[in-house]
Simulated scan of single mutants.
Amino acid sequence: MSVLSTVSEFVGYDQTASNAVSITVNGNQISGWGRVSIRMGVDIMPWTAMLETTLYQPDTGASVDIPAGAACVLSIGGDTVLTGYVQSVSEELTPQEHVYRVVIASRSVDLVECSAEFSTYQMNNTTALGIAQQVCQPFGISVSAVGGAGDIQIQQFSVILTETAYEVIERVCRLAGCIFYDQPDGTIVLSPVGTTVASGGVQQGVNMERLVSLSSLEGRFSSVQAIIQNPAILFTPPADGDKHAQQMQAQTAPVNASASDPGVPRRRPLLIPVELADDNYSVARKRVQWEVARRYGRSQVIEATVSSWRDGSGTLWAPNTLIPLTRASSSRNDLLLGELELVQGEDGTHANMVLMPSDAFVPEPLVLPAEQNEVTAAVSRD
């Protein structure tokens, strides 16, 4: 197979060295792709890429032979961006052109699509990181942690037989209060919500090509109240004085867990149940605050297109980093990069970003399984 370093001559497209996209398959580096789309994100697994070239001169002797299923590495300049497998290869032939298209997925595609396998489906006295490492080990995928993510001790954790490996990791990361996502080298990282600020960021009049902002009340509530799950028996009709209010007070007062969203102008209450093992209601108090913050964060979305794949320091944009957004008014707002698409084609090189407040990505507080088991055992003994 010849190395397609001259494909750019066929498609009439010249790439700068820092943004030259190539894939390495079976020891061969293939570059010169005319159209590129690379999709990455905090909530996206696996990361994926689509590469396409159009050969207008099929008799030049250049050839492509990329087998589906082959291991590959995608790079931009000297930076590794995605390590995984060739998912599919397609060709389209017409009298005028020969279109060759390759779709790539990161190694985590097997975690998303395949069932989890263990020697035992119940793990005791381990950490969230340890469980994630065990679930990834059969697939040859390493898992690391930064910022102390995944260090939380989990006394008992059971895997459901039909769960995918991804579903197991998603559950355990919620218990640990951290997020997880792909890395360019094909590994997975457990991490807190990012605090690293990208150099330069997105600036109107500098590198911003397009911006769409969304501010919504959808899914938001004026108040969020935790409530005990015991039955509330109404001995008198709700219309009889304030009996209904008194019964509701009896169900919520012991918890003392409520939060409000000042951005919701009309009455929109939300009741959430207190979990069985949350005997001191500490998780419920965190949960109501999380509900307000998460729903607000997901309702404030910025979609921005910038003219470069790299920040002001020359580093490729990366998910889970804070992006300073500067408007023409010079107001600055640091938002988390949740989703990123790097695209390249006849109209140049662009980066499409989805930005939200950091609170939009904080995992939901949950009661640890060990605490649930202890409470269940205590009830059984009684």
Rank of each mutant, 00 (worst) to 15 (best):
V3I: 14
V3L: 13
L4K: 02
G12W: 09
G12E: 11
Q15V: 08
T16C: 07
S18F: 08
V21T: 02
Q29H: 11
S31L: 04
G32P: 01
W33K: 01
R35E: 15
S37E: 14
R39G: 07
I44H: 02
M45N: 05
P46W: 01
W47V: 09
L51G: 00
E52F: 06
T53W: 00
A62D: 02
V64R: 05
C72M: 15
D79I: 06
L82I: 15
T83G: 00
Y85N: 11
S90A: 15
E91F: 12
L93D: 08
Q96K: 10
R101G: 01
R107V: 02
R107Q: 13
S108R: 02
L111A: 08
L111F: 10
L111N: 02
V112R: 04
V112I: 14
V112E: 04
E113L: 07
E117I: 11
F118G: 07
N125P: 05
V135D: 04
C136W: 00
Q137A: 15
S144D: 10
G148P: 04
D151N: 13
D151E: 15
I152K: 13
Q153F: 09
Q155R: 12
E163I: 07
Y166V: 06
I169M: 15
V172A: 00
L175C: 05
G177K: 01
P184E: 03
D185M: 11
V193T: 03
V193Y: 01
T196Y: 03
V202K: 00
Q204W: 15
V212Y: 11
S213V: 12
S216E: 13
L217Q: 09
R220Y: 10
S223P: 02
S223Y: 03
I233A: 08
I233M: 11
T236E: 13
P237F: 07
P237S: 06
A257I: 02
A259G: 05
S260L: 06
P262A: 13
P265N: 08
R268F: 08
L270S: 09
V274N: 00
L276D: 13
D278M: 05
S282M: 10
A284L: 12
K286T: 07
W290S: 00
A293E: 15
R295P: 00
G297W: 04
S299F: 04
A304I: 06
V306I: 15
R310T: 12
T315R: 06
L316D: 01
W317K: 00
L322F: 10
R327G: 11
S329E: 15
S330P: 05
R332I: 14
L336M: 10
G338L: 03
L342R: 06
E346R: 14
E346Y: 06
E346T: 14
G348E: 08
T349G: 06
N352A: 06
M353A: 01
P357T: 05
S358T: 11
V367K: 07
E371C: 06
A377T: 08
A377P: 02
A378G: 10
V379C: 09
